[in-house]
Amino acid sequence: MRAFTALIARDLRLSLRIGGEALTLVLFFVMIGVIVPFAIGPDKGQLARLAPGIVWIAAFLSMLLGLDRLFRNDDDDGSLLLFRHAAIPLEAIVAAKTIAHWLLTALPLLVATPVLAILLAMDFESWWRTTFSLLLGTPALVAFGALGAAVTVSLRRGGLIAPVLILPLCVPVLIFGVGAISGGSSGPALLFLAAISLVVSTFAPFAAALALRVAGD
């Protein structure tokens, strides 16, 4: 357990010390909200109707953007190799890194959603529904992301391939995530979303750890 928390603490500390990374991600997230009205027009009614979907797509793309960081640095400097001999199994290490990654890439986006809500003319009700569905859905996105990052860690061009691999797998997350916002069917959608997040974040560390082992071999 000490190793688990130490790893999370290290990743958070490194990111805070290097700085800017989370901020850049938030900036990208907000920028998507800024350019969408240029593309589809500033009509407030239309923006408000599309806003939940836009916020989800923005979150989705921002998270893909930060994916390559997840294992790349530790692989480059040899830490990943040494994690194989840590006091906790590689699966737990992947889980710890995934949690740290969620804290560093998903949480800042959740915090930044009010900005998008204002830009996209969302009312309070749809803002908090969107934020809540993001809160439930982002763990699945991060877990799939960890899998994609692990699979491509030994590739120099991995930064491009991982998103292409993960995107189709994330379709259900997107469907239920956005489905959870619009009234009517939001109950079952929220449950499905939570179920997917739970299942994916339970099993992805195993698949990702397997991929990391193969990559080292």
Partner: peptide
């Protein structure tokens, strides 16, 4: 077995910002 050994490789596994 795995937590019985230390490996010292070419790469130092040192984080420059810590």
């Amino acid at each position: 077995s795995m937590s019985d050994l230390h490996l010292l490789g070419h790469r130092a596994a040192v984080k420059p910002r810590l």
